[in-house]
């Protein structure tokens, strides 16, 4: 009994000595996504659209998979999320905040994947956020849709744009790694999603519809990764 007691004390003191500012006040850190359009915060709580500009442009839906969240100190991974992936939906505020467990270590950046890795894509029926019933899975050809952005744009045929970015295999792979430096280990790591980065392609009429894996989806996914920027 006595050795176990000392071991427990040792373990606790070791953990306490490594506690960093990120976990101060006993709070676990959280990753917070804040969708914006040209710097203006989008709100999903009122009405159908997240953003409306007259009758010529709107943002109606932003959904994406955020997977394999890691915190890094320099190049070293100091913490890895046990939850494989999170489905983030701009219309559902609760999904915009991902609570991370206590880190207890210093970290300088956060890294996550935008999308679903290829192994998960060929693993059959999965549950939770990966349940195909969540509407982020293609029916006609197997594979997850990593990101969906939809809305109205008067320059598009039928006035609708639909960007369904996905594809996991070979040159059509669209998963993106996002790295964001963390300035201070604040309780909340707020990451902006500047949708204009990708929606300028829609507004200038270049791309209005992507519904299949391929070259276009790869190019737009590359652009989508650039939407994620640190806000504080």
């Amino acid at each position: 009994m006595r050795p176990f007691f000392f071991f427990l004390i040792g373990l606790l003191s070791c953990t306490a000595s490594e506690t960093h500012a990120g976990d101060k006040n006993g709070l676990s850190p959280a990753l917070v996504f804040r969708p914006i359009y040209n710097g203006k915060e989008l709100s999903g709580t009122s009405g159908r659209s997240l953003f409306v500009s007259g009758d010529t442009f709107s943002i109606d839906q932003i959904r994406f998979y955020c997977s394999d969240i890691c915190l890094l100190d320099g190049e070293a991974i100091v913490w890895r999320d046990k939850t494989k992936c999170h489905l983030v939906d701009a219309h559902i505020p609760a999904t915009l905040k991902i609570d991370l467990s206590k880190i207890g270590r210093r970290y300088t950046s956060i890294r996550f994947n935008l999308g679903i890795d290829s192994i998960t894509n060929v693993s059959g029926a999965l549950g939770g956020d990966l349940d195909p019933a969540k509407g982020m899975y293609w029916a006609w050809q197997s594979g997850y849709i990593n990101m969906k952005i939809e809305g109205v744009c008067s320059k598009c045929d039928g006035r609708k744009y639909r960007l369904h970015l996905g594809g996991y295999s070979g040159e059509n792979a669209t998963i993106q790694t996002v790295n964001i430096p963390i300035q201070a280990n604040d309780h909340e790591m707020v990451i902006g999603i500047e949708t204009a980065t990708i929606l300028n392609e829609v507004k200038n009429g270049t791309t209005c519809s992507i519904m299949i894996p391929g070259k276009q989806a790869v190019i737009l996914s590359d652009l989508a990764a650039k939407m994620f920027v640190p806000l504080k």
Binding site: N121, G124, A125, Y137, A139, W140, Q141
Partner: peptide, 22 residues
């Protein structure tokens, strides 16, 4: 086009000429 038996039923259920549902 379908990579796993588990997800096979999604295709005919959604196909407009087959079951036209979701």
């Amino acid at each position: 086009a379908v990579n796993h038996l588990d997800v096979q039923p999604l295709a005919p259920i959604a196909n407009k000429d087959e079951m036209d549902f979701s």
